[in-house]
């Protein structure tokens, strides 16, 4: 797995387009939110900014890059090549997704550290961390499922839009309007409960139960991926 991850990291840094979309773009968006945090805090709260940072990195950095990478490795038969070796499927997928996942976790941590330094410490880091992990796991699962429906890296520009825009929309809606109305719907939407948990944890303290819907989405995404994921291009 680590041999594949290492080669994946090399490829990521050689391919500037991937580096820009997966690394620079989410940082730029997050920097803007932190720079104007007082304005955004009046719309929602400081916790809302933390949630938007997590979902921007998760949707545009992690999710989109993972789908594009998997589609590209399948299209040029690199997946088939890896499966011609003794490596099993889990370690192949693990190796391919490990670098982008670690990079996203590092990004989220770094951006939120800067945000905390600028706007004041979050209420509960112990609750923010599991929320962030759940979001990352959900986005990886959704990426595996979406990759099954994506024929090429170009096609990924279209196929990733519903999920990436969808979770950002949910995070904004829940982050700005709260969950006092339409509570159940907001919590069951992908990213809804996670947003509520991040907002609450940043602003003070949150309920651990809010992890459940996000973890349920991880299970749904992995089940979908098991049905949809393909290793070789369609002929």
């Amino acid at each position: 797995m680590f041999a594949i991850a290492r080669s994946e990291l090399i490829q990521m840094f050689r391919n500037r387009l991937v580096l820009v979309t997966s690394f620079i773009m989410p940082v730029a968006v997050s920097a803007f939110f932190i720079y104007r945090h007082e304005a955004f805090a009046t719309i929602g709260s400081l916790g809302y900014i933390a949630a938007i940072v997590m979902f921007t990195v998760g949707a545009f950095g992690l999710y989109t890059t993972a789908v594009t990478t998997l589609a590209s490795r399948r299209q040029n038969l690199f997946l088939k090549r890896l499966r011609s070796t003794a490596a099993d499927d889990r370690s192949i997928l693990g190796g391919l997704l490990l670098p982008v996942t670690v990079l996203s976790v590092v990004q989220i941590t770094a951006i939120l550290t800067v945000f905390g330094a600028v706007s004041g410490k979050p209420g509960s880091i112990a609750l923010l961390a599991p929320a962030a992990v759940a979001i990352v796991a959900m986005m990886v699962g959704l990426a595996l499922a979406t990759a099954g429906l994506t024929n090429s890296p170009e096609h990924a520009q279209v196929t990733t839009l519903p999920v990436s825009l969808g979770v950002i929309a949910v995070a904004s809606w829940v982050g700005i309007s709260g969950t006092e109305e339409l509570t159940l719907l907001k919590r069951l939407l992908p990213g809804g409960a996670a947003t509520e948990m991040v907002v609450d944890a940043w602003n003070g303290s949150a309920s651990v139960i809010l992890l459940a819907p996000t973890l349920a989405w991880v299970v749904v995404a992995v089940a979908l991926a098991a049905r949809l994921f393909r290793w070789e291009p369609r002929r």
Partner: peptide, 22 residues
């Protein structure tokens, strides 16, 4: 394999090392 299946962004040496190791 009948068709290549190597990553265009890796070098020849890196490709042999990776696949060989696996």
């Amino acid at each position: 394999l009948q068709e290549s299946g190597f990553s265009p962004d890796l070098t020849v040496g890196e490709s042999v090392r990776l696949i060989g190791q696996l």
